[in-house]
Computed example of a mutant assay.
Amino acid sequence: MPSKTTERAPVERPGRGPHRRGPFARGPFGRGPLTLRARRARTAYLFLAPALLFFAVFYYVPIADVVHTSLHTGPRADEFDGLGNYVDAFDDPAARNSFVVTLLFTVGTTVGAIVLGLGLALLVNRPLRGRALFRLALLVPYLTSVAVVGLLWRNILDPQLGILNRMLREFDLPTQQWLNTAPLTTLVVITLWQISGYTMILFLAGLQGIPEVYYEAAYLDGAGSRQRFWRITLPLLAPTTLFVAVMAVISGLQAFGQAYIITNGGPADSTDLYVFHLFNVAFRSRDFGYSSALSVLLLIVIMVFTALQMRAGRRREVRY
């Protein structure tokens, strides 16, 4: 009697899925079938391909070109100089001054962004009338371009026609040379005025993500408002604080428009931010090799600061 033929079901392999043969199930160069993990990875890379291509064309290729240019000198940056531009960067007193000024500016804006953002978030997180309008009003400066903010504050702080000194004259108070007395502090205050609304939104999202049950349990245990803030709010806001700090540091190290529009790097290079100095070297001195070396050094500094912040933030992260 003829034997009955039965179809065999696909063999299930742990972590690999059914074992099927076919042209679309083979591995590279046709050597055996693809595993389930490999097929998922291939699909993921297909979806990521447009973004990876975008980053390669508009980020990685320009970075590689800047690194290549930094190793050359001359009017057209076509004479190989090795690490000469980097040596000149460390020996240049103007570059060192701009780096110190930028560090002070970054520290001021980072600390201020965290303190002001958290304080405003705690304020607007309460059930107050018109808090939605208040949030919007604080966020509007962040949505305004740096150029508009710079022109606005340059007119406000003008020693002769500025509205701030005109108000002081109305009250018979002495006028001030705002951009000459403490120019770097003035730039820090203007920057905080612009970005505090954004950091407020970030901290507000972090506050609303903390479960209310923690506060209720602490209240039942007799913890006061200060103890709840220091023992519950701040520890659970550690990821948000880390993100705000990292973004503020990166933004501070890359600041340019404030010095370019408001102070032009003066007086006496006291607001000569690093990127503004780099801009002058590249487009006023026409030294593209040296400016490229300054750009690469800035990239390295940003990467180092970001790595240190991420490492320190992960160690202090608290989970209840």
Rank of each mutant, 00 (worst) to 15 (best):
F90Q: 12
V244R: 02
V189I: 15
L297F: 03
Y320G: 02
V149N: 06
L278P: 05
I114F: 11
P141F: 06
A217Y: 04
E12C: 00
R316N: 04
L122T: 08
L104S: 07
R284H: 08
L220M: 14
S98A: 15
P239E: 01
G266D: 13
V275P: 11
L143M: 11
A113H: 11
R37L: 05
A248Y: 05
N264M: 12
L53Y: 02
A9C: 00
P62C: 04
P183S: 04
S225R: 14
L253A: 10
D172W: 09
L123W: 15
Q208D: 07
W153K: 07
P211D: 15
V246R: 02
L192R: 09
D92C: 05
Y86K: 06
Q309G: 00
R315L: 09
E7G: 03
S285A: 10
T102F: 00
A44D: 06
T240I: 13
D269Y: 05
I302R: 02
G266K: 08
G82V: 05
S295R: 01
R284C: 00
G22E: 08
Q208I: 04
F279Q: 14
T109G: 13
R13P: 01
G224N: 07
V101E: 04
L36G: 00
V111W: 10
G22P: 08
A245T: 15
V115E: 12
V124Y: 07
G162F: 09
L236F: 08
V318F: 09
Y86V: 04
L83Q: 01
V249D: 02
S225A: 13
R37T: 11
A113S: 15
V115Q: 12
Y59Q: 06
D221C: 13
V301F: 04
L136W: 12
L34K: 14
Q309Y: 02
V11I: 10
A95L: 01
T106G: 09
F90M: 12
A44W: 13
F276T: 09
P33A: 11
L237W: 00
S196T: 13
A223M: 08
L308Q: 02
L139C: 03
N97L: 13
T110R: 12
A248M: 08
Y320H: 10
V188A: 06
R135V: 13
A25M: 05
Q254W: 03
W178T: 06
G82W: 07
T186Y: 05
N280H: 13
F256V: 06
L273Q: 08
A49H: 10
V66T: 14
G112W: 08
F58Q: 09
L36E: 12
V101Q: 03
